[in-house]
Design a binder for these strands. Structure first.
Lengths: 231, 231
DNA sequence: ACCTGAACACCGTTCAAGT
DNA sequence: ACCTGAACACCGTTCAAGT
């Protein structure tokens, strides 16, 4: 019997992880990137850290808090473009936000539920608010408008992003898309006359075109619609 | 030893449930109404139907499909108001939709993920499309606009509706709201100047006011923003 | 204070076997 | 064809006990 090559593996996985809050978050992000957020469970993260799940509860209250921390961490690098009109820069910024949600499977649907309010989300909110105000939009409309834009960005990502990592999430977006196309194309002219007549319009456009239009439509509406708090 | 009172309990829970797809959906809705959608699991529904979970798989492919069926079932009764302008009737209809999502814990976040395309959702889509067209909005904008309105309604409900039934969903909306208010009120004027200056505007308004404004803003934007598919 | 093994109370889904 | 017991492979969280 040969001795196990313990020293070797020790050098690869040095000593033992320090097990801090930040280290837990980093490992969670790693797992999410590789296998989707759904796989980044307390048990799985603990396993990756060579410990039992109970140990994580010293640093993190529960799964929800862990995922909220991950969301905020990923928003760290969003910056405002240097050129373009205020509306163009706003569209680019909210699109960058959507991309973060889009590219990390499971993140958007998680963000919708947990409402993370970390420093990086606040910074993003501030920048969007600033762009509206730069554009001469009344601050009260701007404030509610940022909420609306972020909400629809998150929701769009939740709908279109791939599942929680692998197929067993139920039905994949691609498969769902087929179901939608089929349902609309075969819409009954008797019960759903408008849908039947305008099926092409309903299904038209690439996701990016639809997204861009919806952002511009929202910005236009936000800029022109008065609050009625004085009634 | 006395005989078990089998005939009695037979009369209460007659014979044995027929175990059809519709019966499964109905029981699922019952459980959701009482305890939230999160509790309406395959195992739990099977238990309520006096059978093992495997039996459900004869009628329903997986949990996702079950929840999608529940969503469509609940949209059955949405109708268009008889009076008011097209925009007012549209606002009322999409608000009714939001209310269904709002009142059934866990339903909205489920709907965002599963994109149900049952007959009742198609009928709702058709009615909203019809109202836009009645209002003279170009069909291509109207088609994408209905998508945007339904998306933001679902997302709004997902954010504000109570958790999945009970407290253990992590953090409740009320608690989250406190966290948001605190974070905005204590925003740092150095790193988030706009947020600090306009904290009152960000936090202003009751949910209903904010919702009504966001619907009107979206409708206005949808009606006035041209598609750029011709570029 | 920090860490952990073990347990509690659950999940979704599949499969082989029954009727 | 329809139904099911049992199993497989997981979950989140808590708790008593250790260091």
């Amino acid at each position: 019997m040969t001795m196990p090559r313990q020293p070797q593996s020790r050098r690869n996985r040095p000593a033992k992880p320090p097990l801090s809050r930040q280290w837990i978050i980093d490992v969670t992000i790693e797992i999410m990137r590789r296998e989707g957020l759904k796989k980044a469970t307390m048990r799985r993260v603990a396993q990756e850290l060579d410990t039992g799940p109970a140990s994580l509860y010293v640093y993190i209250r529960n799964t929800t808090e862990l995922h909220a921390a991950v969301v905020d961490e990923l928003l760290r690098d969003l910056t405002v473009a240097k050129s373009g009109s205020w509306a163009e820069r706003l569209e680019r910024l909210v699109t960058d936000y959507r991309d973060v949600m889009w590219q990390n499977p499971g993140l958007a649907r998680s963000a919708l539920v947990i409402r993370p309010v970390g420093p990086n989300l606040l910074a993003l909110f501030d920048r969007m608010l600033g762009l509206f105000i730069e554009g001469g939009v009344a601050p009260d409309r701007a404030a509610w408008g940022v909420d609306l834009l972020l909400l629809s960005a998150t929701a769009t990502a939740a709908e279109h992003a791939p599942g929680d990592g692998d197929e067993d999430a139920g039905i994949e977006p691609a498969e769902q898309q087929n179901a939608i196309v089929l349902a609309v194309r075969t819409a009954d002219a008797a019960t759903t006359p408008y849908l039947a007549e305008h099926a092409d319009a309903v299904l038209a456009g690439r996701p990016e075109e639809r997204w861009s239009w919806s952002v511009r439509a929202q910005i236009a509406g936000i800029a022109t619609t008065a609050l009625t708090t004085d009634t």
